[in-house]
Design a binder for these strands. Sequence first.
RNA 1: GCCCGCAUCGUCUAGCGGUCAGGACCUCACCCUUUCAAGGUGGCAACCGGGGUUCGACUCCCCGUGCGGGUACCA
Length: 484
Amino acid sequence: MAPIRTRFAPSPTGFLHLGNVRTALFAWLAARSTGGSFVLRIEDTDQGRYVPESEAAILETLQWLELTWDEGPEVGGPQGPYIQSLRLDLYAEHARRLVESGAAYWCTCAPERLTEMRLEQQRLHQPPRYDRRCLSRQDQVAAERESGMPAVLRLRMPAGTTEWDDVIHGLIRYDNADIDDQVLLKSDGFPTYHLAVVVDDHLMGISHVIRSDEWIPSTPKHLAIYAALGWEAPRFCHAPNVLDESRQKLSKRRGARTVLEYAELGYLPEALINAMALLGWSSGTEQEVFSREELIAAFSLERVQSSPAVFDAHRLDSLNGLHIRRMDGEALVAALEFHLPETSIETRRRLVPLLRERMITLRDAVALAEPLLGPAPWDPDVVFPPRKVDPETTGALLDVAVAEVEARGLDDLEAMRLRLTELLESRGVKARDGFRVLYIAILGHPSGLPVFDAMAFIGVEKSAERLRMARQELDRRRSSPPAG
RNA sequence: GCCCGCAUCGUCUAGCGGUCAGGACCUCACCCUUUCAAGGUGGCAACCGGGGUUCGACUCCCCGUGCGGGUACCA
């Protein structure tokens, strides 16, 4: 496979969500899997929608996911700058070439006129497109521009048809008569996406334009610009959109979470990448869990689906749990620091074996470890004594446990376990029911981390203390049963 | 309205003319078990409709239908 040189070109109008980044991931994988290169470019040609913090957030998102770029902001490169607002002269130069060759023309039509025109076209069941009024009066338009009237530069869409062989969709064909004379330069002098993307992709030597499906309708415009400039067009790969549960394109506006929010919620970058890769791509084997390296080895654009995919949060959860379980121990200890900031590295090392199998997200560690790191107040809803365990057995169990801990400490918890099991059986109480007493006493809740491990963690003193407290609570509840 | 894309279990998907239509998530049951998990086993569950083409269509073609996207001096 020839090396693919591709790019991700977000606009700094907001934060990145799974939909955006899934496309970036495909581009990154295409580059990495072919030994090619990946370029990051910021498309900030819309001054009105610019959100200052978003640019930094985009870089942070990609860095967190380790979707490394070979050229772009911060790292530079031979085709820089990689921020479009810094490349205005380049667009102006190419716009001039387009005007000179007759591929573009100036237009001074007022927005109101354009709106009215489109309404009329819609009423007449016609395709919406500029009626080229200004094309036939270029001398007047020149004079108007001279006198300071605002103007835009339009692409003169040639007649005929446009088609291309999309890597993901196959042949797509358009009748040029359905395509508008796109604005290339806005009246503020900034280029539109359409001009800038073509100029930059060509100058930056992009071999594969990987972007999402919503760009399909504007590809003929881009192809026309390539042709007008005498350039060879890159391959186009239109990746299907990622949809939310209501089958709409994922968007911040509709409540899509940003990738950075997933990070805070305790999702692993590897899991997010795995989940995103599976949205629209499959290996063709039955492997579903992939490390970053495995993904690079298995990926190919040809196996990208052409139909949109609904994002499934359950799938992400499942994958996140799986990745946590297969994660290197020390890496997990380190990753947990963010969620358990008060803990020492040693504490986290002791915690990891207990937590690992029980976490869906890293954040789950907080609730899971709570009774080990601090006091363990009882869950207000806890039933005590637990169902199926009579008060006498509960008391006996607690008494034995206290005595064991006080006499022998926690060195032989297996012996204590056997002792307690024996006691429960002799009283006709199933171990699974009876041990709930211990869980409540130690953890404040009838379920959670393995209770003997928990006792070992908190130590002799606290274990004995919590057991005695439970014993007292039992007496208290027996003398004054809770109302209701 | 005009243009384009898409169509297999609830969801993500495998399939590339002949399969008991496979896997994963979700869900249910069971096993394991000191709880909860994890793990294991098994169950439920799908080819949008109608025409063709073909000895034979989930698979190819056409038409519907549905869903999505575009239709901006936003990207």
